[in-house]
Design a protein around this nucleic acid. Structure first.
Lengths: 256, 256
DNA sequence: TAGTGGTCTAGACCACATT
DNA sequence: ATGTGGTCTAGACCACTAC
């Protein structure tokens, strides 16, 4: 136990990666199922004869891969992945919202997905959004923010931008937009969207997003920017969404 | 300089988070642009009077948010985000979307995206895939693997599964499938796909994926599972794709 | 109260990149 | 040759959770 310093990571994997790989393999073998407690820092220190920070680093790998969750004062636990499906295609079909159903009611699947908080304001939109909507600089937009909560956890925040001049005086500027939502109301004033484009990307969240969505370490966000366009080619709405990637599967149907 | 131990993080943010936030703000103010070198561990230790591990932790935050890249022996540098667009709907829409439809501003066109390596084998597919294709257990599938390289960096690996009995003897089992690709060939044998479904999700990569795609820390992957269905409703292909999320924006067009 | 993970210190040796 | 980030040690105090 004296000079075991030699040959530490010559040619070989770092210790923390070995430990992490071992734990990961055990999880994949099913030795630890969702919700189970893993060996903690003290266990790993004793078992592998390493310092605290090394054991921590090992657990950090699993955490940053999103397959493990550390609970302060309790331990490290295996996460589970139970996403909801969000249908990008049929949920926007005219029949759905034309019939007076809210767009979002189609995606629930028996689980509890509800709107948590809604706010409607007038603000100057981001430059990119203003350009898409064809708004001059300094022109205000109607901004609708909503947060969606799934089984008690916030999973999506949506920020919708519309030309304020276009929608002023309509229920779009109210919290409750009535049956069919804002797309039905846009139809009421002769600007029914007939086409949508969704752009999807993914990245790690910043600190603010982590807090707002209560994301666990190792959880990316998916970003969806949806643009609604009328028959005349006018973009009437831009909806920026931030999704907890551990909560969603996006689904798109495509015709050849 | 004696007992500054008091009031360390009582009520306040941890030091490493403060340092990280400061650096992040500086990046967002444009003080450090893409490719620029950030203050390193030694700088931060001196500037904030903290230990090495604390400075490291601060830089680790930015790294795990994917906005910074550590280069061994060189320093820590600001990453840049220059994604390609992947159009899920092939239908080209021209003027419909207006002139500068670069919603997430991608200077994408004119970069070279090429296939790096192709392999075609016969293997037993994963159980989920077998079920989608309607294959009994133990029945082999034709498995086509491809890796796509963008400007020298691998960005996508695709694994395509087809019923081996269906496609044997066709160019689908060759590396070069001829004009129109495997969908045209499927059409030749009377199984032309008319509908596709893509399911998209995102998570952090495992060690194997990180290596295969040469991902930097803080980079998620997007997973796309595309199913091709014929007019009779038969699923003839399942294509599992793994994408470097820092390299792609997915685009889907939807008709109301 | 005992044990857990979160933060922090002050050292150390290493591989690597730039000079 | 110097400085960089990567790994590792052996301690410490804290807040939190479970018992």
């Amino acid at each position: 136990m004296a000079s075991e310093r030699s040959g530490r990571h010559l040619r070989s994997q770092p210790k923390y990666q070995r430990i992490a790989a071992e734990l990961k393999a055990a999880i994949e073998r099913g030795e630890y199922g969702p919700g189970d407690r893993l060996p903690g820092e003290n266990d790993l220190m004793a078992r592998h004869q390493v310092a605290r920070m090394t054991a921590r680093q090992a657990l950090g790998v699993l955490q940053s891969e999103g397959l493990v969750e550390a609970r302060k004062g309790a331990g490290v636990f295996v996460r589970e992945f139970r996403p909801v499906r969000r249908r990008g295609t049929s949920r926007l079909s005219g029949a759905t919202w034309g019939a007076g159903h809210s767009v979002w009611s189609t995606e629930t699947e028996g689980r509890d997905l509800v709107v948590d908080a809604t706010s409607v304001t007038e603000e100057e939109p981001p430059a990119v959004v203003a350009r898409i909507l064809g708004l001059a600089e300094g022109v205000p937009a109607c901004v609708r923010r909503r947060r969606f909560v799934l089984d008690g956890r916030p999973v999506l925040v949506a920020t919708s931008y519309l030309d304020a001049a276009l929608v002023s005086g309509t229920p779009i500027t109210e919290s409750d937009t009535g049956p069919g939502g804002i797309y039905a109301r846009l139809g009421d004033i002769g600007h029914r969207p007939v086409r949508f484009r969704e752009e999807v990307r993914s990245r790690m969240p910043g600190a603010a997003e982590t807090e707002h969505l209560r994301l666990l370490p190792g959880t990316p966000v998916m970003l969806i920017r949806r643009t609604a366009v009328t028959a005349t080619g006018r973009a009437v709405e831009v909806n920026d969404m931030i999704l907890d990637a551990s909560a969603y599967i996006l689904e798109y149907d495509i015709d050849a």
